[in-house]
Design a protein around this nucleic acid. Structure first.
Length: 478
RNA sequence: GGCCCCAUCGUCUAGCGGUUAGGACACCGGCCUCUCACGUCGGUAACACGGGUUCAAUUCCCGUUGGGGUCACCA
């Protein structure tokens, strides 16, 4: 059984790059699950007590839930390998550290941070280019567990660590590049590499997939597995998602937290679709449902080179998902749009919205955009755009709007085709082209110069409101 | 600087020795048309450079250049 995990640090919002890591793991777990066995574990790595907060844990869990990335084990759902929060696992790390010390694979170090900082500074002063490595001061020192100490791994001076990355292939790193790094801090809290290894091995993780920025952590982690006499999991590193200018993607480059995209009216599956296609491909296919992603995902087609985030393409993918009923049903579309309609001060139920989704499906690029385009349907009287009125609600159009109202009034049934037929029958007598009547009518009915097709608008609004709006507009012209 | 990684249109990518180097987004035109979209047709646009290997390199190897990651009692 393949077991993967996502192990975020609760030090802020869930970053879009983090979502991609979670997604790839999740996709793999779900794919394996469909093939017989797969598990997705969520673990909170909160050992950085300075920056970790419960609020952040909540945001991360909410974000994952919104995205639909459910976990089989972890916070909220439990599981046999808990607890799933590192600060609740301190005894386990101590147990593993003691084991390593007993096996002489690790040792207690009594050097203080101040002493080490001083050594680092001294070296830097002597040779600015030199790289400080812990000199192994406490390697042979008499053990005194009662004294304050950290636990360091005894790293071999020679040799190298080799592993085969699922996306990068064979990676060889000389041991000389490592030092006797710290496993456990003096307060008993593990450092990242040790905590990750102890958790991954004790939770039965078989594949670790994470960002390429973690690739440098893999050799030391493998050393820990070896010291523990535990088989290391497989590793897969994902290329990084950079900002358009090649820098690390951060707040100053625009929205990077999942919640922002949620609030901007993105579809969670569009977010996942864009992220999945970033660093991974499946022939020429660009648009995927979640099921298609699960079925198609593999490590072989993961890319090795870093990429740059493209907000425009992201938006285009979102538009694609909103356009396609197969990817976003009317019901879901309405449910996701409703909060944004409500935010505009319109008290409208999901059911009412659902009936008009077809009107704006091809046009709206986000659910926020959808709410905006639907405003005229639910606001009565409609908000008339001043510029639109100045341009089209001119004296000459007043009689036309009244005539149009008269032409439409008796139409039966009140649906697009006969309504359009009625107007087409009337039009020749006016000697005007359709656009000369359509634009003033559009502004009168929707308040804007751009809207869904005029006859769809007329049909949806209903006889009463159409006649009222046309006549009100004509009256307003004076 | 040490160690590690990467390199196809502006961007995301297909390609796994022989292709008119394909798709998508973006951009620019045409068509459709009651507006805006959608749709559709077409266009501009890429193998970083230098050596090898080979009958043949975008593809394999080496180097150069460029870019990135990381060097903590952060993760």
């Amino acid at each position: 059984m393949e077991r993967v995990r996502f192990a975020p640090s609760p030090t802020g919002y869930l970053h879009i790059g983090g979502v991609r890591t979670a997604l790839f793991n999740w996709l793999w777990a779900r794919k394996r699950q469909s093939q017989g066995g797969g598990g997705f574990v969520l673990r909170i790595e909160d050992t950085d007590r300075e920056r970790s907060t419960q609020a952040s844990v909540d945001v991360i869990l909410d974000s994952l839930r919104w995205l639909g990335l459910d976990w089989d084990e972890g916070p909220g759902v439990g599981g046999p390998s808990g607890p799933y929060t590192q600060m609740e696992r301190l005894p386990i790390y101590k147990e593993y550290a003691d084991l390593l010390i007993a096996k002489s694979k690790a040792y207690r170090c009594y050097c203080t941070k101040e002493e080490l900082d001083a050594q680092r500074a001294a070296l830097k002063a002597r040779d600015p280019k030199a790289q400080f490595r812990y000199p192994g001061t406490c390697r042979g020192r008499t053990d005194a567990p009662a004294l304050p100490h950290v636990v360091r791994l005894l790293v071999p001076e020679t040799g190298s660590v080799r592993y085969v990355d699922k996306v990068f292939g064979e990676i060889v790193t000389p041991n000389a590049a490592q030092q006797d790094f710290v496993l456990l801090r003096s307060d008993g809290v593990p450092l990242y590499n040790f905590g990750a290894v102890v958790d991954d091995t004790s939770m039965g993780i078989t594949l670790v997939a994470r960002g390429r920025d973690h690739m440098v952590n893999t050799p030391p982690q493998i050393m820990i597995y070896e010291a523990l006499d535990r088989p290391p999991p497989a590793f897969a590193h994902l290329p990084m998602m950079l900002a358009p200018n090649g820098e690390k993607l951060s707040k100053r480059h625009g929205a990077v937290s999942v919640t922002e995209y949620r609030d901007q009216g993105y579809s969670p599956r569009a977010v996942l679709n864009y992220l999945a296609r970033f660093g991974w491909s499946h022939g020429d296919q660009e648009v995927f449902s979640l099921d298609e992603l699960v079925a198609a995902f593999d490590w072989e087609h993961c890319n090795k080179s870093d990429g740059k985030f493209d907000a425009k393409k992201f938006l285009a993918i979102n538009h694609e998902h909103l356009k396609t009923p197969r990817l976003t049903s009317d019901a879901e579309y309405a449910a996701r749009t409703q909060p944004f309609v409500a935010a505009r001060g319109l008290d409208v139920g999901v059911a009412s919205i659902e009936t008009v989704v077809p009107l704006i499906r091809e046009r709206a690029v986000t659910f926020v955009d959808a709410a905006d385009r639907l405003d005229f349907v639910f606001r009565d009287p409609p908000a008339i755009d001043a510029a639109a009125a100045t341009k089209f609600l001119v004296p000459a159009s007043a009689p036309l709007l009244r005539q149009l109202a008269a032409v439409l009034e008796p139409v039966e049934p009140w649906i697009a085709a006969p309504l359009e037929a009625a107007v087409n029958a009337w039009l020749p007598g006016t000697g005007l082209p359709m656009k000369d009547i359509a634009q003033p009518a559009r502004v009168a009915l929707t308040g804007r110069t751009a809207s869904p097709g005029l006859f769809d608008v007329i049909a949806v609004l209903g006889r009463t409101r159409v006649l009222a709006r046309l006549r009100a507009a004509a009256d307003s012209i004076g």
